[in-house]
Each structure stands twice: as C-alpha cells, then as structure tokens.
C-alpha cells in the first residue's frame, strides 16, 4: 500500500471521527475538496499525518470547533453572479408579487452575504414586508457572522459593482454604514430574517416555503447526497414554489426533475409544478 492509499484511509477515519464525536456528517462530500481542506488543516497544526489530527479532534473541543469551521466554510460575496439576481428580479419576482406572503429558505447560508443580497432585492421590489427569510447553516460560527452582518470594507467595492450589474435600483451604500474597516449591514434588512441552525445532510424538511435559495452548496456533495437534499427541497416547497441553485448546479440529473419546470436554464432557476 502506498502513501496515497494510506492517506485515503486516514481521510475516511477523520470524517468518521467528526461524525461519531460531533454528529456532522461529511462522509458524502466530494473527496478532492475534502482532501485539500484536511491537508490545509494539517499544515496549520504541524502534524505529520492526517490520522494525527484524530486524537486532537476527539479530545480538544476548541480545536475541533475551529477545524470543523475551517473544514466546511465556503466563500461567497454579495450579489455573486449578478446575472442570477437579475434573472430573479425578472423571472421570479413577478410571481412573488401575486403571493399574499412569501417564506424563503436560504439553505446553507454560510456567512450570510447572499441573505442580505436577497433582502435588498426584496426591499427594492416592495416585497420585503410580506416576506420572511429563514437563513440556515449547520455551522454556528458561520451563522453568528451571518447574523452580525458585518463584512470587511475592502470587499464592498466588489459588492457594489455586483449590485449595480444585478439591476439594483438604488445605491449599494444605502444598505450599510462603514465603521473602521467594516461595513455594517443596515438593521432594516434584518427585521424579517431568522438565522437558525439546520443541517441539510442530517435533517429533513425545514418548513413549507415558497422559495429556496441553495447556491454553491450542492457542488460539494456526492450524487447520493445531492439527491437526498433535492428530495428535502421538493418536500419543502409549496406548489409553484421556486428553487434557485448555483450557476454550476443542476436539477437535470436528479430524481425530482420531473416535478419542476425550468424558469431560467442558464441561471438554474426552477419552479415546482402545480
């Protein structure tokens, strides 16, 4: 057995250790990213082998919390993929305007950038007051950052540019105030957002909602886990509800594809059939 094969075994044991000890299940995550992330953690600890991390993980909760955060965090930005938000304004908002109330689930919200982007969009479209956004993630550290709504000021230039390209009706600076090196998101954006812990991998349906945003989460999952999550989504959406995926994610090969029609193929926006 060569060192690669041994490392593969160590990776599986690492994932099992997290699962047994803390309940987070990464065993159906695509392996190439898992391997890269674990090696990154390994490099920071000075340990030699992946298996050396396992005792730390099991006995040192502080290490584990940090490691699981590093291991699972993804990086996004406000109005990432401006064309997507433009498509939501054009293809989804007109439907939402006919709904008496709108419950929206942002599944796997990470540090919240897309949640605030959505809140801004809803405000500008006059929908925010009858909307309720449930923003969930399994990672409490990420969720805390999301609910704080404080982002590095250096990123704001990018956000502003994205916002403008997405069809924003106002000025992005209307939605935050700057303090030292931070941009603090406006309180009015938060009034109808509930941040809560939910694990897509181990928990089922969340609530009946009219819209689900789950962008760039499923790319990390293997096919079986993707299908499990798609089923959760199909069960959580009301009739005529919308599913919005990342621009590189598709319903096409899933078991629930027949239950949906395509609203925007390019931007991966789907609507549940009646």
């Amino acid at each position: 057995m060569n060192s690669d094969d041994i490392e593969k075994i160590e990776l599986e044991l690492f994932l099992e250790a997290i699962h047994y000890r803390y309940g987070y299940d990464f065993r159906h995550y695509a392996r190439a990213s898992v391997r890269r992330r674990v090696r990154h953690i390994l490099g920071k600890t000075g340990c030699k082998n992946v298996s050396d991390l396992i005792p730390l993980l099991i006995h040192d909760e502080q290490f584990a919390t940090k490691a699981i955060y590093d291991f699972s965090i993804t990086v996004t930005e406000m109005f990432r993929d401006p064309d997507f938000y433009r498509a939501v304004r054009q293809g989804v908002v007109p439907y939402l305007k006919t709904f008496p109330f709108i419950k929206i689930w942002v599944a796997g919200c990470a540090t919240g950038e897309e949640v605030y982007s959505l809140a801004i969009l809803l405000q500008e479209e006059g929908l925010y007051n009858r909307a309720k956004i449930y923003a969930t993630d399994f990672n409490d550290t990420a969720l805390k950052k999301a609910s704080d709504g404080i982002y590095p000021l250096k990123d704001v230039q990018q956000y502003t540019s994205n916002y403008q390209k997405s069809g924003g009706a106002c000025s992005f600076s209307d939605y935050y105030h700057a303090e030292y090196n931070s941009a603090i998101m406006d309180q009015s954006l938060k009034s109808n957002i509930t941040f809560s812990n939910h694990n897509l991998v181990t928990e089922g349906s969340f609530s009946e909602v009219q819209v689900i945003f789950c962008r760039n989460v499923l790319i990390y999952f293997d096919r079986s886990l993707q299908n499990w999550v798609f089923n959760t989504f199909a069960n959580s959406l009301s009739r005529s509800g919308f599913l919005c995926l990342g621009t590189k994610e598709t319903l096409e090969f899933s078991a629930i594809y027949d239950q949906f029609k395509v609203i925007d193929a390019q931007e991966r926006i789907y609507q549940k059939k009646i």
Binding site: A30, V75, N216
Partner: peptide, 14 residues
C-alpha cells in the same frame, strides 16, 4: 478539481 474516479468537482473555497 479532479476526483480519483476522473470526474470534475467544483468549489467556492477561498
């Protein structure tokens, strides 16, 4: 990224 089974994966890691 390329998986061991010679399929692609994408990520939005840092």
């Amino acid at each position: 990224l390329i998986e061991d089974d010679h399929t692609f994966s994408l990520s939005v890691d840092a």
